[in-house]
């Protein structure tokens, strides 16, 4: 039983689910980059892409794994934060321990909560709408998700929300990706250096990639 409760095991679960989610971010970004195509072309291609995803059984299975990962990653985080609170006992009255580490590595939970809240909104507005809502169809007969997305990003507050969340995600990844590898036991100094560089680049690329889309849509429509 202690094996299950054990923090190294729990951290491994965190790492594996986290890495899977990171991998998903790449796929999701590649799909969404289609939104940057010229409007008419983008509409048809994006909608047919969405349709394709919705219909494929493999993708469906993968998406269940994805939901499970989100769930486990979050539950584990809650479990570990209770554990942390128990381990800490009374807190310091004068605390400057922060000098020794980066703020985002210390605040993974807070960043995670922002991401989680965003995910709920994101799911509700797009995923839920697409799955269960009444949507118009495009010329190919696919549900017109494209228009929903474009309309959503006409609103400034929505763009801001999106960007804030993506920045939170970026910092979460900045620490998370390399931390996950450490947790899983990569201790060799050279590979650690490589993972550090790759992990940071990954975080930066993902952040820029995801931020370009709402900005592009917002400004494109304004002009």
């Amino acid at each position: 039983m202690i094996f299950i409760k054990n923090s190294v095991t729990r951290k491994n679960l965190m790492a594996i689910t986290g890495l899977f989610l990171s991998f998903f971010l790449i796929i999701h970004l590649l799909g969404n980059l289609q939104l940057l195509l010229p409007a008419a072309e983008a509409q048809l291609q994006y909608n047919s892409y969405s349709h394709l995803l919705g219909g494929n059984i493999v993708i469906k299975l993968v998406s269940y794994v994805l939901y499970l990962c989100i769930l486990l990653h979050s539950i584990d985080a809650i479990y570990l934060s209770f554990k942390k609170r128990r381990a800490n006992g009374t807190s310091y009255s004068y605390d400057r321990r922060g000098r020794a580490s980066s703020w985002y590595s210390r605040n993974m939970m807070a960043l995670g909560i922002i991401i989680f809240v965003f995910l709920v909104i994101h799911f509700k507005d797009f995923w839920y709408h697409y799955k269960f809502g009444e949507l118009p169809v495009d010329t190919n007969g696919n549900k017109d998700l494209y228009t929903i997305v474009v309309v959503a990003f006409e609103q400034l507050w929505y763009v801001v929300l999106y960007i804030v969340a993506i920045l939170a995600l970026g910092y979460h990844l900045l620490h998370g990706v390399f931390s996950a590898h450490r947790t899983m036991g990569i201790y060799h100094p050279m590979y650690n250096r490589i993972i550090n560089i790759v992990g940071k680049s990954f975080a930066v690329i993902i952040t820029i990639g995801y931020i370009i889309i709402p900005l592009f849509l917002y400004f494109n429509l304004q002009s």
Binding site: I2, K5, N6, S7, V8, R10, K11, L80, K83, K84, R86, A87, N88, R97, R99, A100, S101, S102, S105, R106, M108, H175, F178, S179, R182, T183
Partner: peptide, 17 residues
């Protein structure tokens, strides 16, 4: 675990201090 220590999140503050 049994002694009640927390988990490691690789902030690396320990190495610095």
């Amino acid at each position: 675990e049994e002694e009640g220590f927390g988990h490691c999140t690789n902030t690396e503050a320990c190495e610095v201090e």
